[in-house]
């Protein structure tokens, strides 16, 4: 009997332990696309207020506090189980506190840009996006809405967040976009994370961004949002085909080379559009010499 109990305890402990050290179950935007490709018309645009700031300082590392570290435990299965629970709770609380502190520290980089960034309220983002989208894609398809009214063909919900690198040489937009079909009932036709990157080679990046009352920063922020919406609409419409073989794509961000596995969807003079293994879309800056034909083709995107 004792032997059976011991084996049972061992099995329970092993099952519990093998789960220990796994990552926190953080949620992220899952790529989702309806198989039928529809032309998206009569679009209502909503900037979702998640309560989180729209602009953040970039952290040097994407996962600063990974791993559970080593563990010591005393004798006895009960003590062992209690240790596991305590370890999980305290580790999680410590990690969150450290992450919040690191983020607050990283956000200090934005202080000098506040005069420009303060303009980017949700209603301003919606207005800027609509003005540009209705210019690029005419016929007045886009309308600003603050809640879901009826009789819109589609509704695009987005929640853009920008990250400024600590050396201020790059600005990364992560825009969570969901497209609903309004009728006959709210139905998600597309959902994805679109990431757009803007970089400057200037040795004094803050002078570059803030020149002429922050005109360059405004141009880049607005441009990234527009490009992300365009990319989402193209993807939802089935215009992005995964025709190339997966490859490891290198791109520079603040003098550091990053790598991402994915398929190249667009390879233009000024940008490269990539679908990552998660299905997300990355719009990466590119600066290659192109002839007039390629430039004209790139201008259409």
């Amino acid at each position: 009997m004792k032997a059976h109990l011991f084996i049972l305890l061992c099995c329970t402990a092993i099952a519990g332990l093998t789960g220990c050290g796994s990552q926190n179950h953080r949620h992220y935007i899952q790529y989702q696309q309806q198989p039928e490709n529809e032309s998206i018309e009569h679009v209502g645009l909503v900037v979702v207020n998640s309560g989180e700031p729209r602009f953040l300082g970039g952290l040097e590392s994407s996962g600063p506090y990974q791993g559970a570290g080593g563990m010591l435990y005393g004798p006895g299965a009960a003590g062992f189980a209690a240790m596991l629970a305590a370890h999980a709770i305290t580790q999680s609380a410590v990690d969150e506190a450290k992450a919040a502190e690191a983020q607050a520290q990283a956000n200090l980089i934005l202080d000098k840009y506040q005069s420009v960034l303060a303009r980017y309220t949700d209603s301003y983002i919606a207005a800027v996006s609509l003005a540009s989208l209705n210019t690029i894609i005419p016929d007045g398809k886009f309308h600003s809405i603050t809640e879901h009214p009826e009789n819109f063909g589609f509704i695009i919900e987005m929640s853009p967040v920008f990250y400024m690198a600590q050396d201020e040489k790059s600005l990364v937009l992560k825009n969570a976009i969901t497209i609903y079909k309004d009728l006959p009932e709210d139905k998600i036709v597309y959902q994805n994370m679109i990431q757009a990157i803007a970089v400057t080679e200037s040795s004094t990046p803050s002078d570059y961004w803030l020149a002429q009352d922050g005109q360059e920063l405004s141009r880049v922020v607005s441009g990234a949002i527009i490009r992300s919406i365009e990319a989402a609409m193209k993807d939802a419409g089935g215009h992005f085909k995964n025709t190339t073989k997966a490859q490891t794509i290198a791109y520079k961000l603040s003098d550091v080379t990053h790598y991402e596995r994915g398929t190249v969807l667009i390879d233009d003079c000024d940008k490269r559009v990539v679908r990552t293994l998660r299905g997300w879309i990355y719009i990466l800056p590119q600066n290659i010499m192109c002839g007039p034909d390629e430039e004209a083709a790139a201008a259409k995107i």
Binding site: A13, I14, L17, T18, C20, G21, S22, Q23, Q66, G67, A68, G69, G70, M71
Partner: peptide, 9 residues
């Protein structure tokens, strides 16, 4: 791992 225990992701 530390015996049965994974000590990280």
């Amino acid at each position: 791992y530390s015996s049965y225990v994974p000590v990280g992701d």
